[in-house]
Computed example of a mutant assay.
Amino acid sequence: MDDLADLARSLVEKAQPRKRKLEMTQLGSLINPGLDDIDARANRPPGISTGYTEVDAILGGLRPKQLVTVAGATGMGKSIALVDMARHIAIKSRLKVAFFTFEMSNNEVFDRILAAQSKVPHRLIRDGLLDQEDWRRINSKIGPMSNAPLFLTDKAPMRVADIRGHCMRQQDGPGLDVVFVDHMHLTYPSSPRIVDRTAIMADVSPALKLLGMELDVPVVAAAQLNRGPSARLDKTPELTDLKGSSSIEQDSNVVILLHRPDYYDKDSPRRGEVDFVIAKNRNGETGTVTMAAQLHLSRFVDMSTD
């Protein structure tokens, strides 16, 4: 009889829903580690440097779990900005970078990095028109590039799931600190049934955001602007000019809009300048940083450096 009672109790217990362990964090438990972390921030860099001093001052560098969108019209310099930041992070800061290029080949990215590093015009490198002095300058800069932890892939098309797979393998292997995607509008949606441009961006943008959250690294992605700025008297881009979907603005922690006045007016008194319009910054202030656009060297530099 006792055995039957024990069996009955056992069956009742199995039928009842089990209490799940509380996986949420009580505020009070955050106090001590939180205060310790705040105290330690004064003695460590706030984030990964982009290589642009004033941009870093506003953003505090690139931070883990952030989606940073660099947007601009065609020809404004989105790819230059992404390659330039990746170059600085990998070669100067020696941090591990995964760079996904859907607009250029790996060799084209190499040419741009070589031009920026050596200060030999990109056109001469592209066409092989190098003299002895050019080769001397190139050879003097090859050393730091040879073992830079910058990992490129020009394989396309790719979905965010494919990007994730590459990043997971790199994180398990050489390691991973930052992900660059050039660019968002050339990334494929999760399903071939998603064909509408707005729906594609509503699929890709949050997936890139979640990728950074999962990997605990910043994800920096280029994005296209629509033709809004060219139709206005004031050509300065705005958040509403992001092409395809409002989800890009919603998902991004930071949105940087590129603007070159001489793109629209060749006789502009600001010829050779580029504005990094920080139009959204979820963790701080917004603002505009003006830098020198050294397009012949495939790079942007601080005005003070220039």
Rank of each mutant, 00 (worst) to 15 (best):
G175V: 08
L215P: 00
Q171L: 06
V179M: 12
Y188C: 01
D172I: 07
V178Y: 05
P157K: 09
G212P: 09
S205N: 00
D177L: 02
G212F: 06
K155I: 15
T187M: 13
G212E: 01
L186H: 15
E214T: 06
L186C: 00
G165C: 01
L215D: 00
E214K: 08
K209C: 07
H166Y: 13
T198R: 02
I194A: 07
I163K: 13
D162E: 15
D182Y: 12
D177N: 12
T187L: 09
V181N: 10
P157G: 08
R159N: 08
F180E: 09
A156Y: 14
M168Y: 12
P192N: 03
T187A: 15
L176P: 11
S190T: 13
Q171W: 06
V178F: 02
M168V: 14
Q170I: 05
M158L: 15
A202V: 02
V204T: 03
H166V: 14
G212Y: 07
R159F: 02
M213R: 07
P206F: 04
E214N: 04
R169K: 13
A207W: 03
V204C: 04
V160I: 14
P206Q: 04
R193C: 05
V204K: 03
Y188E: 09
F180K: 11
P192G: 00
V178I: 07
H166I: 11
L210P: 00
L208I: 02
P189R: 05
F180M: 02
P189Q: 05
P192Y: 03
P192H: 00
R164I: 00
V181T: 10
R169C: 04
V204Q: 07
T187H: 11
P206Y: 10
M201L: 10
K155A: 15
A161M: 09
R197L: 00
R197F: 01
T187P: 06
V179A: 05
T187D: 09
Y188W: 10
K209F: 04
T198Q: 04
G175P: 08
R193F: 02
T198Y: 01
P192A: 04
K209G: 07
A161D: 11
Q170K: 10
L186I: 04
I163E: 09
M168R: 15
R193Y: 06
D182K: 13
M168C: 11
H185W: 06
M184K: 05
R193L: 06
D182I: 14
A207Q: 04
R159S: 14
R164P: 00
I163M: 14
G175R: 08
D172A: 13
G173A: 11
V204A: 02
Q170T: 04
M184T: 15
L211M: 01
D172K: 13
M158P: 04
L176M: 07
H185Q: 14
E214C: 01
D203P: 00
M168L: 11
